[in-house]
Amino acid sequence: MINTIAYGLTIGAILFIISIGLSLTFGTMRIVNFAHGLVYTIGAYLIVSVLPIVRNNFILGAIIAVLAVIPISYVIERFVIRKLYGVSIDYAIIATYAVALIGIDAIKWIWGASPIPLSDPVGIDVHFFGITLPLYRLIIIILALVIFFALSVFFKKTMVGKIVVAALDDKDAVRSLGISVDKYFTYVFVIGSSLAALGGVLYAPITSVHPYMGMMVLLVSFAVVIVGGLGNIKGTFISAFVLGMVMAITGRFWGPAAETMVFVVMAIVLIFKPIEV
């Protein structure tokens, strides 16, 4: 049972890291960003390619992979997302899905369609309370906590963070103060995409890397965002860990039902608390 909880915490941590970006773009720009799953997949593929170059130094590889995603996400923001501000949400969904389609095909072109396995970069197990847990998973959980606190400070203390929080609440009011909201949205988008890429990098050694890995994770992180509330860091944090737990516990009793259970929770939340978009 403790093992199940530990597994749930790992999934929750990764879900949190991935979902923040989605939550922020959904909350600030009112865009359902299907390209988010693409960025996650690119992160995972980059770590696969970069590792042999940096002689299997995972930390250096992860940093390079996350930094390399920044220009890619900037291009997506500049040429697609920015043109979708204020447009009907349907077009935003379709356009970002088209971007994801292009990206996935490009990945298949460059890396091929077959899954690539990746070994655990730490490879050490820790023993405590009578259970065995790979140290790598423990690091992921700690990293998620660090990111959560860092983002909380970022949105409370820094000017950029404060403007974004204000824009989440009332975009027009912020704009009327003479602040170029769109510029800050670009920052938010790039931060969110980098975190998604980090999620992909971290998850790559646990699962195998394949072109469609982003899509399923994306659907689950939509559920996280909706359960947690749009643009709500704390809500996303809690809901990611709760849904991670739901997945782990369901998976323990009935493996194939794990991901479906997340959608059951999401449907229930939507029934009782429909989001106004």
């Binding site: 949400i89 349907d90 989001i275 978009v277």
Partner: peptide, 25 residues
Amino acid sequence: RTTGACFALINLAFNQIGYFLAVVA
């Protein structure tokens, strides 16, 4: 009762559940 993104995603959620029911359960 829902509109926009919510309508799209709730349909998606039900589709996932339906897929699971038909194929696994």
